[in-house]
Structures are given as C-alpha cells and as structure tokens.
Design a protein around this nucleic acid. Structure first.
Lengths: 220, 220
DNA sequence: GTAATACGATCGAACGTTCGTTCTAATAAT
DNA sequence: ATTATTAGAACGAACGTTCGATCGTATTAC
C-alpha cells in the first residue's frame, strides 16, 4: 500500500477530476483540520472522532489516509519542521553577515509562526507525544534546525572574539525557548505587528550576546 | 468532607502516630509521586492506576485524598506557582535596585527549577489541562507572578529612561519563554551549574534590555 | 456500445481495551 | 463499637482501530 507513506508528496497527483480535489489535496485538507483540532485540544484529548468531524470525513474514512493517530501527529510535525528548516536554509543562502543571518532566522520563524500557528503550537507542545522511529525522525529534523541556528551563533561570537562566559548551547536554547513559547501568548492578529515583535526579539538577543562579550571580566 | 479542600495545609496535622506519617504527610507523598508520574507521561497519559502504583496506595485509596484526577493536577500547579510566587516576594523584599531584583528573580526561578523539576515541568506543560475554577485560580497566581516580574522590568526601564522601541510585555514574555522552556533541555545534574546558567540568562536579558535602549534610534 | 468486472473511496457499526470513578465489603485504629 | 481508611471488583463512557458492505468510476470483454 502506498498511501501516505511519504511526508512530502512525490505522488503524481492522480487527480480524480471531480469537485473534491485529488487524493493529495484531500489528505492535506484532513491534515490541516487535524492540526487545528490537535492545537485546540491537545494530542491526547483530540480524538479521531473529533478530527473526523472537523475534516468532514467519517471516522473509518480517516484510516484510508493515515495508518494511525500517531501517524497524523508525525506528518504534522515532520512537515512543519521540514518546511521551517528548508525555508531557513533558502533564505539564509545569500546572507554572509552572521548578525544579519540571525535576524533573518528570527524573522522567518515569526513569519512561519504567523502563517502556521496551529502547526507550530503542535510542534512546540507535543514534542514527546511521538515514539519510536516517528520520534527519531522528527528529532533528527529538529537537530538540523538547531545546528543551523547554532552555526550562526558560533560565527557571530567568533567574529566578535567572544570566548568569554557565554555558553553557546545555553544561549541557543534561551532563544529557542523564547521562540517556542510564542504560541502561549502571542496572537499576530491582536498583538503588535509580526515584524515589530520579531525585530525586538532579535534586538534583545543580539544585544544580549554582544553586550555579554564586552563585559566579560567586569562582573563576578 | 474536609479532605484536601485547601491547597496549603492549614489542617492541624492530626498525626496517626504510625510509621506512615500523618494524613498531610501521606497526601504530600502521593502528590509527589503523582507529580513525577505526570511529568514523565504527561497529564493525559498518566492514569490514576499509574499514580496509585507509583505512590503505593490502591486505586480507590486515591479518591480518599483527591476528589478527582483534575484536582491532583490543580494542587500540583497551585502549590508550585504559589511557592514560586511567595518565595520570589520574600527574596525580593530587601532589594531596591531593579537590576538586582531581576537577577534575584531569575536566580530563584532556577533554584526552584533545580529542586522541583517535575513540578515545574508539569506547570509549564499542562497549563491548559485544567478547566473551570481550577484553571481560573491557577491563572490568577500566574498573573500575580507575571505582575511582579513586569513591575521589576518597568522600574528597570524607567530608571534608564527607556521609552524607546521596547514593548515591555513582549520583553517579559520573551524572558518567561526562556525560563518555561528550561524543562525541555536543561538537566541541572548533567549540564553546567545552576548558578552559571542562571547568571548567563540574567546577563543576556539585562544586556538585551539596556542595549536596546541605547540604540533606540540608530536602526530602522 | 454496452454489460461485466475490478478497484479505490467511503461509510455505519462494532470490537476490545483503557479510562476515571464508584460501590461494597474488609481491615486497622481509637 | 465506632470510625476512618483501604482494597477488589465493577461500572459506564470514550478511546483507537477494524470489519463488512456500499457506492461511484474506470477498465475490460464481447
């Protein structure tokens, strides 16, 4: 069976030529409804019946597109992290200055958050809800994302001669904490504009890095 | 019935004088085991049977101490947030400088985290698992905690004449994001020392604040 | 051109399990 | 004896998943 075995559709569309769209389009539609449902109720409380109702298919119909409930969560996370990572690599490609790279990264993370709030909420909140190979695969993508961010930070600090008291892993996770906690409080539609918040976070973090370098020996 | 109706025990101990301790002590023991179980499995997957096994009482015995599963989660969160808040207010009492207050706050948060990892993990991860008045009451305490932090930040920025581009709510939530995300990556027993990490986070945040003030008009 | 056939998509209904909770009786303490 | 505390068994509900049948459509056979 070759249904929903791959995270990104390399399947040749195979449009059924009726009003409801192709197989892949219907799968995307269900996945989108499932994302909103899981974001709203949490993975544990979001039942397959609720996902079925939200996406407009029957309970049994869900299992034509996904082997299991866990597979739905895997696809949501793998696609979101994958998009985030590939988009970051693309947008950073022509940028040389590490400081500019870091600003791009934060700005792009905010942009993705604003466009995919439910998906990023699920990604931030349900990290431990997967197990086995599904967990390993998503963790792999997360580690790659971490690696890109960490690489930027390394070049940033190296270029400023910062061998001081900054633990770079701690600094990276502090930034990720700020970004991954967004879904708890920030609503792009009600709060200040996305770019405004993104710029402030970037300013804060960069001043936090460069400021910590310059006062490396003045405090105990 | 007056069992477990209050979050902090004002009950006069009523020791049963056997080896297993008083009623309150047994309640604390069960609550501690429940905290570890919920932190390990998540609230949804942590069954009452698992909590019973972990705490050494029978399934039905649990309901002599707690009306419901949700009440267990409420007590964990209410006690943890309450301890965090009252401890913060106490430790900040004799400190005047806002910068020093902020350092105290971050240091105390780290100290509490190191001593109560399971409880703070549950508090950070299961914020939406409560409903009704249980949710309202815990949110109330959280808001008070936010208010203290926000007050410190306000005095800090005011004392430096910072009326620039810093959205103070955004800045506060950025810090809370870093602190509340700790449970995802930081293990005080394996990573760098608690005070080291706490100092770095405080340094980063303070430089982020004061640095952003001084360059308020140099960037678009 | 039409009937027969094969197949993917979809559904209502049900299965077996686990959940939070409660009932009832037995036990330990005073 | 009375009261508080515990434990085994069971309850109804909800869960993820599977089953068997049905519908529509594309392909094949003649």
């Amino acid at each position: 069976m070759n249904k929903a075995e791959q995270a990104f559709g390399s399947k040749p569309a195979a449009a059924t030529s009726d009003g409801r769209g192709s197989y892949d389009e219907r799968l995307d539609h269900i996945l989108s409804a499932a994302t909103d449902t899981i974001a709203r109720l949490g993975y544990g409380k979001a039942s397959m019946r609720e996902v079925a109702k939200a996406s407009g298919v029957s309970l049994a119909g869900l299992y034509h597109y996904f082997d299991s409930k866990e597979r739905i969560l895997f696809l949501i996370q793998f696609r979101a992290f994958g998009s985030l990572l590939s988009n970051l690599r693309e947008k950073i490609c022509g940028v040389d200055d590490p400081e500019a790279q870091l600003r791009v990264m934060i700005r792009e993370h905010f942009a993705y958050f604003a466009s995919n709030m439910s998906a990023l909420k699920v990604c931030s909140h349900e990290l431990d809800s997967l197990s086995g190979s599904a967990y390993s695969e998503t963790r792999q993508v997360r580690h790659e994302y971490y690696g890109v961010a960490r690489g930027i930070l390394d070049r940033l600090l190296d270029s400023h001669g910062g061998n001081g008291r900054i633990d770079r892993h701690v600094a990276t996770m502090a930034l990720f904490g700020t970004l991954n906690w967004l879904y708890r409080w920030y609503d792009p539609q009600r709060g200040p504009a996305v770019n405004t918040v993104a710029n402030q976070i970037a300013d804060q973090f960069l001043h936090g890095m460069l400021g910590s370098i310059k006062t490396s020996e003045t405090q105990s």
